[in-house]
Simulated assay, not measured.
Amino acid sequence: MIIDISRKLNSKTPTWPGDTSFSYQLTWSKEETGSVNVGQITSSCHTATHVDSPFHFNSSGLTIDQLPLELFVGNALVVDVSFKDVVRVEDFEMVDLSGVRRVILKTNAWVDPEHFPESIPTLDPELGQLFREKGVELLGVDLPSVDPLDSKTLDTHHSFEENGVHILEGLQLAHVEPGEYRLTALPLAIDGADGSPVRAILETLE
Rank of each mutant, 00 (worst) to 15 (best):
T15S: 12
L71G: 02
V81F: 03
P187A: 08
G164Y: 06
P117F: 06
P17T: 10
S59V: 13
P54L: 09
Y181Q: 07
G192K: 05
A185P: 03
P148I: 10
A189W: 02
F22D: 03
E169M: 13
P121Y: 06
G170F: 07
I190M: 12
D194R: 13
I3P: 00
T184P: 00
V79P: 03
H56Q: 14
P178F: 09
I2R: 11
E90S: 15
D124C: 10
G195Q: 04
S6G: 07
V95P: 03
G39A: 12
D80C: 09
V111R: 13
E114R: 05
L69N: 04
G179E: 05
K30T: 10
S119M: 07
S11L: 09
H115A: 14
F92V: 10
P113D: 15
D150W: 12
G61R: 08
P144F: 04
G192N: 06
N163E: 12
G170L: 05
V38F: 14
V87F: 05
T49E: 02
I120P: 04
L9E: 02
P144C: 09
K12I: 06
F83E: 14
P68L: 09
T122P: 00
G74S: 08
H166W: 11
M94Y: 06
P148R: 11
H166P: 00
P187R: 05
P121V: 11
D142Q: 02
E180T: 15
S59W: 13
V79C: 03
G135F: 08
T15I: 14
D85T: 12
G61I: 14
Q25N: 09
L26M: 13
V146Y: 02
I201H: 07
V81P: 03
P54V: 12
D150K: 15
L62W: 02
A185D: 05
L69F: 05
V165D: 01
E137R: 13
Q25L: 03
